[in-house]
């Protein structure tokens, strides 16, 4: 969509934003062009100085150390994702086979509601959300660890 977002513009609109619109959407003091901001992305991370810079440069320049770090992070994240996906597929995926092999399961009732309706109508949604929540925590934890390690 990058190159045609302009295309969604109604006819007669200029290609570049009008100065007024630009000011409204970008509250940047006119004396200081916004372009300046880009190089200071890391500024907010506070002090740490040259050591951190060096590790980041190491990452960027693909030294063997940097590459190893990234590989480990990717492996860690992938293991978490695959593990959780497997667990969820297992927790949901046993049902068709079970209901097929043991028709009596379908007949069972809990609180007057047939078991398949309870298991497939109610349980999966909290389960999916819990899996998502767990993954978010794990993934953000890994990322924080990585940043701390690189920061040192």
């Amino acid at each position: 969509m990058s190159r045609h977002d302009g295309a969604a513009r109604p006819p007669g609109q200029p290609e570049q934003p009008l100065p007024a619109a630009r000011d409204a959407s970008m509250p940047v003091p006119s004396t200081k062009p916004p372009r300046r901001r880009r190089v200071v992305l890391a500024e907010s991370r506070g002090k740490g100085g040259t050591a951190r810079a060096r590790t980041i440069v190491e990452l960027e320049e693909q030294t063997s150390v940097g590459e190893k770090l990234v590989r480990d992070l990717i492996k860690q994240q992938l293991r978490t994702a695959l593990g959780l996906a497997g667990l969820v597929l297992l927790l949901l995926g046993w049902m068709p086979v079970a209901f097929y092999l043991v028709p009596a399961l379908s007949e069972a009732r809990l609180f007057g509601v047939p078991l398949p309706w309870l298991l497939m109508g109610l349980v999966p949604f909290p389960l999916l959300y819990a899996a998502g929540y767990w993954y978010r925590r794990k993934a953000e934890h890994h990322e924080r660890d990585f940043v701390n390690m690189v920061d040192r």
Binding site: S2, S44, E143, F146, V147, V150
Partner: peptide, 22 residues
């Protein structure tokens, strides 16, 4: 792959518009 997986605070994210607009 570094860009895809590096945590956001490290600032490897590549965005046409972050560069342009912050």
């Amino acid at each position: 792959l570094l860009r895809l997986h590096a945590p956001d605070p490290l600032g490897f994210i590549q965005d046409r518009d972050v560069q342009r607009f912050g």
